[in-house]
């Protein structure tokens, strides 16, 4: 059995359906990304899998164990990093790590090789209270704490939220190394660009999984032709492009707009002529859509 198996999990809070019939599996040594905005149900799903919440219906297995019946065993075998880096702010880096090592019946030394790469980066600050660390440092410390007992499955709930791009990049590099040690990793993120770094991604919205696929598979499944357009005055360009009668969607992406048309490529020429008239400096090129384009497309349908 795969390290994480989720079968038709649903969960309701009062009138809100937090999870609707969720099913997926994560293999050993796989980095599985749960991509979706706040409120999509990512945290609820994590809590079900880490035995903190009971699902209303459906089954889930972590490391081959039932999340309801065998919760005690699961709690020994998984590493969990909840959102907002749950650390003791008034304890130093070293004290936090030591504490979490001890409650998992282990010591920092025992599994040092697993956390070494990460720990050396925060070691210079080991006497500093966790509350006084920068976001990136807190994140690294929280990861160390989640890894200190050498878990077989790692749950990371939004580990990169609110962290700057440099720390984010470093964090994903660390995950790649952990993956190579055979740990199954389930990670959630609101950042679409991080989806490309996962082996498998599940796009999540309003408690539902819109699609489970490899990042490449997600992009390939997007059948619509797409163009990137640019002009001197972008604000003007947005309003004119949206006013075009065959425009299906038009959103800003970095320094250009991504546009799709209702009937594929049929109106490509018409669009170009229409836009050129009103927008000096217009450039238009056919592009390969990214994960974010796909997600937005799936969200709307």
């Amino acid at each position: 059995m795969n390290p994480i198996v989720v079968q038709h999990i649903s969960k309701q809070y009062k009138s809100v359906e937090a999870l609707k019939d969720i099913s997926f599996e994560v293999k050993a040594g796989e980095l599985f990304g749960l991509i979706g905005p706040d409120g999509a149900g990512k945290t609820t799903l994590f809590r079900v899998l880490t035995t903190l919440l009971l699902a209303d219906t459906g089954k889930a297995f972590v490391n081959g164990r039932d999340v309801v019946k065998d919760y005690k065993l699961i709690r020994r075998e998984v590493g969990y990093m909840p959102g907002r880096f749950s650390l003791y702010q008034d304890l130093t880096v070293e004290e936090n790590l030591k504490f979490f090592a001890t409650i998992f019946n282990t010591s920092i030394k025992e599994n040092y090789d697993l956390i070494r790469d990460i720990y050396v980066q925060i070691e210079p600050f080991k006497k500093r209270p966790a509350g006084k660390l920068s976001g990136g440092m807190k994140q690294k410390l929280a990861l160390c704490c989640a890894l200190v007992h050498k878990p077989e499955v790692l749950f990371l709930d939004e580990p990169t939220t609110g962290v700057d791009p440099v720390s984010r990049k470093e964090f994903w590099e660390m995950l790649q190394r952990l993956k190579s040690k055979g740990i199954a990793i389930l990670v959630s993120t609101p950042y679409m660009d991080e989806a490309n770094l996962c082996d498998q991604v599940a796009l999540m919205q309003n408690g539902q999984l819109l699609q489970i696929n490899t990042p490449k598979g997600v992009v390939d499944s997007f059948a619509q032709p797409m163009w990137a357009i640019r002009a001197d005055n972008m604000y003007q360009l947005i309003s004119t492009a949206r006013a075009f009668e065959d425009t299906q969607s038009c959103y800003a992406f970095g320094d250009s707009l991504h546009i799709t048309l209702t009937n594929g490529t049929a109106q490509e020429e018409a669009l170009a002529t229409y836009l050129k008239e009103k927008n000096p400096g217009l450039t238009m090129e056919r592009i390969q859509p990214g994960i974010e384009d796909c997600f937005m497309y799936l969200m709307k349908n």
């Binding site: 035995t51 709690r75 907002r84």
Partner: peptide
């Protein structure tokens, strides 16, 4: 409030 209760519960404690 801190969220550390989550980790404690998920630990073998």
């Amino acid at each position: 409030e801190l969220g550390t209760m989550e980790i404690l519960l998920v630990s073998p404690l």
